[in-house]
Simulated assay, not measured.
Amino acid sequence: MPYAKSLARKVFEKDVHEFSSNSRYVSVKKNKVDYNIQQVVYKATIFQSSAALEDYIKDSLTDWIYMLSSLGMTIRYVPNELVCWSAVCAQKHIFNNFFSSGDESKVIKKYSSLCDLPALFDEEHQVKKVKSFKGHIKDRKYPSVKNIERLFFRFGISDVFLEMSKKGRKDYRSLLTSFSDKRNEIAHTSRDLTYTWSEIKKVVQDLKDLVDKIDRVLFSHVCKVSGSDCWRTNVGNILNLDIHDPQNNPPP
């Protein structure tokens, strides 16, 4: 299957285009927008674009889990790293309590009550019956370099920025760091910062390029692990539960 934009990327690009259009409008001299208002709009574009990137990261991975569930896929089509991390998270609070209290009977009772744990290691168990997977996205959805690295590692991509650089021949880790620095500067020292339309345009172009490369890396990975049916490209990818037999559509 040739690459197609994910639904999450399409939404991101639509939102960022709107933010960018607002900045373009206030930059045009004939519109006679006050300089101070221009600066507010420019800075808002950076903040809103950061939020759109955060939504993209969350939605692109959530859609993968959603498609696995809606297609009736089994655990064998979930990244092994995500299965292992889910198992770790399910147990860690129990062992933390045990190490602090030493109460063996309590830890045994709590451990035996973990209904999802055996299912995680049953390759024929359906993904839709496991509730924990989506919860491992929210805590890392803020789009910092560290969060993106860790989040995509959970989903089986060992070095997402390395894979992105192979596709784009660019240092995307530095690109994101530069954008994050601008966003943080505005959050803490906006009174002393000024921007031009050309700078905002470059920021938006860089973010669109960043999302393009993440999307392409994720597409290849989803197809490899789960099959191309699990790549959500539009709202119409919503299918009735249990109509799909994963054994008839193994990952390529």
Rank of each mutant, 00 (worst) to 15 (best):
R191P: 00
S190T: 03
P143F: 09
F153C: 08
S220Y: 03
M164P: 03
K129A: 09
Q126F: 14
T189P: 00
S132F: 06
K141C: 07
D103M: 02
L120Q: 02
D139R: 10
I214N: 08
H188I: 02
G102T: 00
D139L: 12
K167V: 05
D139G: 06
N97Y: 14
K182I: 15
S198Y: 05
V127D: 01
R183Q: 04
F153G: 07
K109A: 14
H136G: 02
S112T: 09
S158K: 14
F155Q: 01
D159Y: 04
E123M: 13
N184A: 12
D209I: 02
R173M: 06
R150H: 13
V160G: 01
K141D: 08
P143C: 08
A119P: 00
N96W: 13
I200D: 00
S174E: 14
K182G: 07
P118V: 10
Y142V: 15
F133H: 05
R216Q: 13
K138G: 09
K213F: 15
E185V: 08
D139W: 15
L218E: 05
F153D: 11
T189V: 08
K134F: 01
D206N: 15
W197V: 01
S190L: 11
Y111D: 07
S112G: 06
I148C: 09
T177Q: 05
T189M: 09
P118W: 07
